[in-house]
Amino acid sequence: MPEPKIRVIIAKPGLDGHDRGAKIVARALRDAGMEVIYTGLRQSPDMIVEAAVQEDADAIGLSILSNAHMTIFPKIAERLKAEGRDDILLFAGGIIPDDDVPALKALGFRAVFGPGTNTQDIIKFLREEVKARQQVGE
């Protein structure tokens, strides 16, 4: 039996329209052999969580540049919990001040990747984290 594929949602919550970074990450994950579900711009927390539920995602990557992360990210974490899918790995990217990182980690975000991150680091992070979760689950 082949290894289960890693399925990742890449989403842009909030109102900013800059998705270049999200697209670069999506492309890098695709090239690393993962299945990337790209949901597009201006996604509400409900839309992102519903997509993650239906797609049986292993991970959700959120990109935001408008500084709305402390408003939106907690809602996503809450919705996931309400859906019983808070086992899904959360990670974030974009413009996120260092001061906010501890609060995001407390919400369950396992990593925050800022500008200049090497995509290989994101790939390595996802492979390790998802594998650990797949072994715990089932």
């Binding site: 994950l29 695709r30 690393a32 052999g33 299945e35 990337v36 579900i37 790209y38 949901t39 597009g40």
Partner: peptide, 8 residues
């Protein structure tokens, strides 16, 4: 790998 974009 695959990029699945139909949900957009």
């Amino acid at each position: 790998g695959a990029l699945l974009g139909d949900r957009i």
